[in-house]
Amino acid sequence: MRLRAEYSVGPDLKFLANLDMMHLMERTLRRAGIPYLLSEGFNPHIKMSMGTILPVGVWGQKEYFDLELNHMPMVDFMTAMNKALPPGMHIRHCCEIPLLAPSLMKVINAADYIFMMQPTGLDLENIAAQILGQEKVMVQSKGKNKLKQKDLRPGLYDIKVESQDEMEIIMVRVSVNEPLNVRFDEILDVFVQVGIDKKYMLDFWRRGNYIKKGEKYYSPLEKV
């Protein structure tokens, strides 16, 4: 069978690189005694695949992985895994998915990032509207081709602002992979361009990964 799990990565684990996270998950599977399946070939590995990469320095509320395993009730899987996971990590939900369902990397195409800031004194509502009102939002690409100028606008789906007593929150919803891969550090660059300095930042994290179909957003557990 194949399952898809939704898990959280707490702030203490935000410095893990992608490969570290993969090793962590594989080791957890082994400690938990999960009957995972191995690939064939000279160098067998656990048939697990992770969703989109969580950037170093960012923690995540809803991340995903898929796993092929011999039959095991979902609730037993979650209990065993949550006992074996390090503090700060937790599997929240999981469900069985068809063996041939497309991979997470193929279907996840949007993500939310949350930026928590101390009061900036800036008119954030206006700044958000201003960014979204531009025809192009140019940044220096942080991806493979670092010299390239990149227009983020087609990938900026939404920017919401929420002011509370002692902090302000900006939620940014962006495109991932297709049609455009908007990187987390590129969003920070956009902020700097419009005067939101890094010094205001109290914390930031990824709230979720989504499958965008037209104007609708689904969780990878809802829409397989």
Partner: peptide, 15 residues
């Protein structure tokens, strides 16, 4: 730690 290379070296909290 966000400003250094390989921050996990300095974060502790391992299993």
């Amino acid at each position: 730690l966000p400003r250094v290379s390989k921050p996990a070296r300095y974060a502790g909290g391992e299993l």
